[in-house]
Computed example of a mutant assay.
Amino acid sequence: MKFAFNHTASLNSLVLAGLLATVGTGAMAQTPAAPPAGSPPVAGKPAGPHEGRMGHRDPAKMQAMIAKHQGELKAKLKLTPAQEGAWTSYTASMQPPVHGARPTPEQRAEFDKLTTPQRIDKMKELRTQRMAEMNAAMDKRGEATKTFYAALTPEQQKTFDAEHKKHGFRHGGARGHGGPAAQKG
């Protein structure tokens, strides 16, 4: 088998490769660099991957969104005065949990004194504690939802069911986790 070297084709390939490299470099140069950690967000843009949804990490926005959803649900349910107490108990139980305070400098210093295996064990302990707290809060919300649901008329229950499905599992347990497994219970 004989191979012939074609100077024109080789030159065209080199020119094409050079053009592609130049265009690629130009495109990369126009991509904005990520802002340094801790810098304020750009006006009009979310600060992180979850910032734009339900006021994530902004308690005031999150509270406003919850109040809006609860107001819409209450209007659709057309509650009677006799059901107001059940509604108040239900909405009080749906408030997001208050997150624990940040570690103090003293706690941070104690943590820094631990060896890596000790830090891993401490993190596991803290994670287990946090998961237990989250499970207890979800159980409390689930029970509050069942209690409120029992106070509704059959027609209101149908409305509640439709809204509950539309908004995921937010009204009775894990916020925003609306998959089929989460909707059991």
Rank of each mutant, 00 (worst) to 15 (best):
G24M: 08
G24K: 10
T25Y: 13
T25D: 07
T25A: 14
T25P: 00
T25S: 13
G26T: 05
G26Y: 10
M28Y: 15
A29F: 08
A29N: 12
Q30V: 12
Q30L: 15
T31L: 10
T31H: 06
P32Q: 04
A34S: 14
P35M: 02
P35I: 09
P35H: 01
P36Y: 12
A37N: 10
A37S: 11
G38M: 02
G38V: 04
G38I: 00
P40Q: 02
P40F: 01
P40G: 02
P40L: 05
P40A: 14
V42P: 09
V42E: 13
A43W: 01
K45M: 12
K45H: 06
K45F: 09
K45Q: 15
P46Y: 10
P46H: 00
P46E: 08
A47Y: 04
A47W: 09
A47K: 07
G48K: 11
P49L: 12
H50M: 09
E51A: 06
E51R: 00
E51G: 15
E51W: 12
E51P: 03
G52I: 08
R53F: 15
R53Y: 15
R53A: 06
M54C: 04
G55S: 01
H56W: 03
H56M: 10
R57H: 07
R57F: 14
R57I: 10
R57C: 13
R57G: 03
P59R: 07
A60S: 03
K61F: 03
M62A: 09
Q63I: 04
Q63D: 13
A64S: 06
A64N: 05
M65C: 11
M65H: 15
M65E: 15
I66D: 14
I66E: 05
I66K: 10
A67V: 09
A67D: 15
A67S: 12
A67H: 07
K68Q: 08
K68G: 10
K68T: 08
Q70A: 07
Q70Y: 03
G71M: 07
E72S: 09
E72V: 11
E72A: 11
L73Q: 01
L73G: 08
L73Y: 06
K74V: 09
